[in-house]
Structures are given as C-alpha cells and as structure tokens.
C-alpha cells in the first residue's frame, strides 16, 4: 500500500532521514518507534506532503513524491499532528465538514455524526475548536478530521501521549476498533512498548534518521541495537 524508497530529508547540514526504505502492507498496524529526534515526525511530514524528500514515495503504486499536500489527502492519506492543529474559529463539526467535502469529495452528515460518536466528540460538536476544548479532545478531533477525509492510510503521531495507562489501553482498543470499522491501514508513532506490543502487527525502529530494525514487535524490542538506542528515550 505504501512504499518508501531511499527517502532522504536534509535540513541544512542535518540529515533528518537517511535512505529510509520500507513498505507498509494493506491492513497493517505498524508502530513507528525511536527516540526523540529520530525522524519519525519528519517521515510523516514527508509522506503527507508537508516537506519534499529525496527518494521516492509510492502510495498504492502511485508515485506521490512530488504531489502537493492537499492531493495526498484526496488520494487517501490521513494524518494527525502531534500538537493538535484544529481549524480554529470553526466548530468541531465544521472541522469535519471541511475535511469531508474537500478530502473525501462528498457530503455525508450521517457519517460525520458516526465519526463524532466514535471519537467521543458528540457533546462537543457545536463548540469552537480551539482553547475551549481539552487537549485530549483536540487530539481526538485530529483523528476525527483525518477519518472524515475517508483515508485508507492513517498516520497517527503520538495520539496516546499524555494518557495514563488505563486510558491508554482503552484508547488503543478504540484504535483497533477504527482499524476494523473503517478498513484502515495505520502507521502510529508511539513510545510505549506495551502499547506497541498490544496494538501493532509490526514495528519499525528509527534512530538518527535510519531504520535500525523492522519486524514483529516482540522480536524488534529484543534486538540489541534497539535496546541500546531506545531504552534511554523511554526513561526520559
């Protein structure tokens, strides 16, 4: 479904991503892990089109390396931002409305209601999407907005951060529900090993902009290279 071929991103002299190559299969839930600054968000930015990398990015066998941001959303790539970026001055429902009309190219209020219910935002539907909402509500809105564009690939950037462990398990269950209900392929950035083990069918580990491990989560987390680079960051 998604293929990255030698994706490289430089910021001035700093190499944020170095020849990153891997593929994501239809229906997978892939955990993208690695210490802070490993390039996870940069990779999301490259896939969703906020930055233009070198190398190639193929989505459903179509080369999207140079496709503009908005077109990727229409092609079926949805993403959430680590720091929620709601469309301010619009209500929660209006946020979804814009996402649906422009991202999915159709108008289906019933589906928006369904998304609002699934994401526990029903009560906030008519509130303005900025300071008035709690951080966790804004994070759920991030996902809801992405869902409204009817994506086939969903990129989730640390949507579970800041939740205590019980809430985290509940939310992971919610993500599994979304995965099945909307027939999604998910790539999720997450630090918590337990969550990755419980949620993901596969994990890719980035360190200093390079893939250092790729495989079943349980095996990946036993990899000495991963242990060496990753444990420090988890404690932090």
């Amino acid at each position: 479904m998604l293929a990255l071929e030698a994706v490289t991103v430089r910021f001035g002299g700093l190499v944020a991503l170095r020849e990153v190559s891997f593929t994501v299969a239809q229906g997978e839930v892939l955990g993208l892990v690695g210490p802070n600054g490993a390039g996870k968000t940069t990779l999301f930015n490259a896939i969703s089109g906020l930055i233009r990398p070198r190398g190639r990015i193929l989505f459903e066998d179509r080369d999207i390396t140079r496709a503009p941001l908005h077109r990727r959303a229409r092609l079926g790539i949805g993403r959430s931002f680590q720091i929620p970026q709601p469309m301010k001055h619009l209500t929660v429902r209006e946020n979804l409305e814009v996402a649906q009309v422009f991202g999915a190219g159709r108008r289906d209020p019933a589906r928006l209601t369904e998304i609002l219910e699934v994401m526990d935002l029903g009560g906030q539907a008519d509130r303005e999407a900025d300071g008035a909402l709690a951080l966790q509500e804004l994070k759920r809105l991030e996902i809801a907005k992405a869902l409204a564009t009817e994506p086939r690939l969903l990129l989730l950037d640390e949507v579970l951060a800041g939740l205590e462990s019980g809430a985290k398990r509940a939310f992971a269950a919610k993500l599994r529900e979304l995965h099945a209900r909307f027939a999604l392929t998910i790539v999720i950035v997450e630090h918590d090993i337990e969550t990755i083990l419980g949620l993901c069918s596969r994990a890719v580990v980035l360190d200093f902009g390079q893939v250092i491990a790729d495989g079943a989560p349980a095996a990946v987390f036993r990899d000495p290279k991963v242990v060496a680079s990753y444990t420090g960051a988890v404690d932090a």
């Binding site: 503009p68 970026q85 992405a146």
Partner: peptide
C-alpha cells in the same frame, strides 16, 4: 463548505491543506 475552508485557511493553513483543501 468552501467558506468554512476559506476561514480555516486564514488561521491554520497547513491544518486545512492536510485534509485535502487546495
């Protein structure tokens, strides 16, 4: 919806583009 998207662009352009708004 066009008007909504336009109002959103003024404040949060990337967030609006990422849901498919040109």
């Amino acid at each position: 919806a066009l008007g909504l998207a336009l109002r959103a662009i003024a404040e949060s352009e990337d967030a609006t583009r990422v849901v498919g708004v040109n």
